[in-house]
Amino acid sequence: MTELLTLSGVHTHIGRYHILQGVDAVVPQGQTTMLLGRNGAGKTTTLRTIMGLWPASSGTITLAGRRIDAMATPDIARLGVGYVPETMAVFSDLTVKENLVLAARGGPPDGERLQWIFGFFPALRKFWLSRAGALSGGQKQMLSIARAIVEPRQLLLIDEPTKGLAPAIVGALIDCFAELKRSGATILLVEQNFHAAREIGDRVLVMDNGRIVHRGDMAELTDDVALQERLLGLSLESHQ
């Protein structure tokens, strides 16, 4: 198991609040690692710290053996890290096409890659020349994810992609992530929909109070209701 991303003793302060309190985590290359935990555990802060949006107060973050904890966000992105925030960040005044053209750092989006994306998210083809701000919430989430995967990335950081979405759209997202996983992509994914987590997760990290309190195979957590209730306060079956 090759380690692509490693966090060692990472602390993050936001103002006077000490959010991450010594995070130690490994994200294996070519696998989907789920980052689970109760609300307020520090999951979003972890992703934002990796991406350089909130600087780590101490500790180290390495990507493919290279330290990135002191790097600026644009430089981290240039290393091939894609980020999908839970806020569904898109450029509202630009069209769907323009959003994807901007996200493709290597030049115009590859036509074959676009057709692959449209297979999961046909609404993006339909609204290709429409303003992103006019899309529904689910369509904006599709566009946000499409922006991150419009070209191959070394690492994808994805924060609660299924939050508030209709079941049909959730199903399309699960299919998309499963295909990304089959293609060898490395994903660190925060998710509250445990059906989705169970379907696409290879590994799992569970956070509590700014620390990783459990690490292991997703299948192990899926099969152990007592462990689920101890770590998450509920069983996966009761939280679909």
Results as ranks from 00 to 15, higher is better:
Glu3Cys: 12
Glu3Trp: 09
Glu3Val: 14
Thr6Trp: 09
Leu7His: 14
Ser8Lys: 15
His13Met: 11
Arg16His: 11
Tyr17Val: 15
His18Ile: 03
Leu20Lys: 02
Gln21Cys: 10
Gln21Lys: 15
Gly22Lys: 05
Val27Glu: 07
Val27Asn: 07
Gly30Phe: 02
Gln31Gly: 05
Gln31Asn: 08
Thr32Lys: 03
Thr33Val: 09
Met34Tyr: 08
Leu35Gln: 08
Leu36Asp: 12
Gly40Lys: 10
Thr45Arg: 05
Thr46Asn: 05
Arg48Phe: 11
Met51Thr: 10
Trp54Gly: 11
Ser57Thr: 15
Ser58Asp: 15
Gly59Asn: 02
Arg66Ala: 12
Arg66Gly: 11
Asp69Tyr: 09
Ala70Ile: 10
Ala72Leu: 13
Thr73Tyr: 09
Ala77Leu: 13
Arg78Leu: 11
Arg78Gly: 05
Val81Met: 06
Val81Tyr: 04
Val81His: 04
Val84Met: 00
Val84Asn: 00
Pro85Asn: 00
Met88Cys: 14
Ala89Arg: 14
Val90Pro: 02
Leu94Asn: 02
Thr95Asn: 06
Glu98Thr: 00
Asn99Leu: 02
Leu100Asn: 02
Pro108Ser: 12
Pro109Lys: 01
Gly111Arg: 06
Trp116Asp: 02
Trp116His: 03
Phe120Met: 04
Phe121Lys: 04
Phe121Val: 00
Ala123Tyr: 13
Ala123Arg: 15
Arg125Lys: 14
Arg131Thr: 15
Ala132Ile: 02
Ala134His: 14
Ala134Val: 12
Leu135Asn: 05
Leu135Pro: 01
Ser136His: 08
Gly137Trp: 06
Gln139Ala: 09
Gln139Asp: 13
Lys140Asn: 10
Gln141Phe: 04
Ser144Asp: 02
Ser144Glu: 03
Ala146Trp: 01
Ala146Tyr: 05
Ala148Leu: 04
Ala148His: 06
Ile149Glu: 01
Val150Leu: 03
Glu151Asp: 10
Arg153Val: 06
Arg153Trp: 05
Leu155Asp: 06
Leu155His: 08
Leu156Trp: 00
Asp159Ala: 00
Pro161Tyr: 01
Pro161Trp: 00
Thr162Ser: 15
Lys163Ile: 12
Leu165Asp: 09
Pro167Leu: 06
Ala168Ser: 14
Gly171Cys: 07
Ile174Asn: 14
Ala178Asp: 10
Ser183Thr: 05
Ser183Phe: 06
Ser183Glu: 13
Thr186Leu: 07
Ile187Gly: 07
Ile187Trp: 01
Ile187Ala: 06
Leu188Arg: 02
Leu189Thr: 05
Val190Ile: 12
Glu191Gly: 04
Glu191Lys: 01
Glu191His: 01
Gln192Glu: 08
Phe194Arg: 11
His195Lys: 14
His195Gly: 14
Glu199Trp: 11
Ile200Gln: 04
Val206Met: 02
Val206Asp: 03
Asp208Phe: 07
Asp208Ile: 03
Ile212Leu: 00
Asp217Trp: 08
Glu220Gln: 11
Glu220Lys: 06
Thr222Met: 13
Thr222Leu: 12
Asp224Thr: 00
Asp224Ile: 03
Asp224Phe: 01
Val225Phe: 09
Val225Ser: 12
Val225Lys: 13
Val225Met: 11
Leu227Trp: 02
Leu231Lys: 05
Glu237Ala: 15
Glu237Phe: 06
Ser238Leu: 12
